[in-house]
Design a protein around this nucleic acid. Structure first.
Lengths: 224, 224
DNA sequence: TAAAGATTGTCCAATATTTTACATTCTGTG
DNA sequence: CACAGAATGTAAAATATTGGACAATCTTTA
């Protein structure tokens, strides 16, 4: 499954027609955010679709102790906030810019107007939502059935892939540990073992996957 | 969140117009399945939308050892198989009838024809997919941050709610344990403690939630 | 550029979970 | 309705994970 992941998780903006892209560009509000800026707050009421244009955003929950529990990372072309449009509920996550970032904000009414004449938007949104469910199911499967080492490896690949094939991942190990449901101690040990096999590189506040394909092969061999 | 869950996870068939319901009824193939029958096999290539009309279906994976790892339970009105329609991929899960069950099968081409004239179908499918993602995120959050006892309680409530408010859940403890990523021993102990507090009832091959509201209150108090 | 603050690596004791094993209870079948 | 097979309850030993602590390393900023 991991091998097909990047193929099925195409960004929203790549799934719509050029005309729809222009239409969105015309009516979206372009916003720029500095590294670490809070783009949306969990609980925000205002419905709207957001689209990453440059940089990367991290989706997760800011806990009271200050840790940030990542759920997904989205790269250029990817959308978020669909839930506010269709469920009428406030934002369910905090969204943080990672590096200098550009995000287009398409307020609810404007999106609803656009989709009247553009069926490809709904089609793309459905695909996006379905693929995301699929990825979440894979994460659940990893958490319930894989040993720590494989679990860490797999979740790293998933996060990197949905972000759009980056090989570098900025996070404190303590945050990543919470994301994986592990203690920092266990995560550190796991990363150390993966690094010893040349599958990841640890840095200060970042993790790199030097050879994605080899890592995927390694995981697939242990998680048939 | 648990308290709003049943409100947001309305079945697909309740979200579309009466006309669309009739249109689906007219072109769907009605199938009946006996208890335990395999409705779909992971890997099935034929695209199509399936809709539960009577009874309950269990979505999961049949492992080689024979255990069935449940992912979701769907009750009357709920749909599944959307992924085969929009991603062009085979069925990702095994689907099993629980009790005497009626399922309508809407082959891919027929669905595509219907949606031409019925925008409410796409709208309902998006909502369904988004709510499902939301539920999966809650499950992930439970798995990574809750102690065993709370985790078991919360996943039970989620499964029962998405099934459409049943209070009875047919499963072997060994299967449920795998679903939760626990050993049967730990699950058994957890269920025992929950039963001692009157929050669940254990039976042979089944679990009951006698007082859903009290259980939700109990969970919410421990998982703010 | 030195010092303060963050983050990471790692050790060890404490705790939690799994594994293994076996007795008990339940269900369906002949 | 007795019996075989299946599922559950539970104890003890083995294993894995966490929590707490501290030194080492890295980054930022004054």
């Amino acid at each position: 499954m991991l091998d097909r992941l990047s193929e099925i998780s195409r960004p929203f903006m790549d799934m719509i027609t050029a005309e729809s892209r222009s239409a969105i560009e015309a009516s979206a509000i372009k916003m720029r955010y500095a590294d670490g800026a809070l783009i949306h707050n969990r609980g925000d009421e205002k419905p709207g679709l957001s689209i990453v244009r440059q940089g990367i955003v991290r989706v997760g929950l800011i806990r009271t102790e200050g840790t940030f529990v990542i759920t997904s990372i989205f790269g250029p072309g990817q959308s978020f906030g669909e839930f506010t449009l269709f469920a009428g509920l406030p934002r369910t996550h905090d969204i943080i810019a990672q590096g200098e970032t550009e995000v287009w904000q398409l307020p609810g009414e404007r999106f609803l107007r656009l989709r009247e004449t553009r069926p490809d938007l709904m089609e793309a949104l459905i695909k996006t939502a379905l693929v995301r469910s699929h990825v979440l199911l894979e994460m659940i499967e990893a958490m319930r059935s894989l040993p720590v080492l494989e679990r860490v490896a797999k979740v790293l690949v998933i996060l990197m892939t949905t972000a759009g094939q980056t090989s570098q991942f900025y996070t404190r190990q303590s945050d990543l540990a919470v994301t994986l449901g592990l203690s920092r101690t266990s995560l550190s040990k796991a990363l150390g073992r993966l690094e010893a096999d040349g599958l990841v590189t640890r840095g200060y506040g970042q993790i790199r996957l030097p050879d994605r394909d080899r890592l995927i092969t390694w995981i697939t061999a242990r998680d048939p």
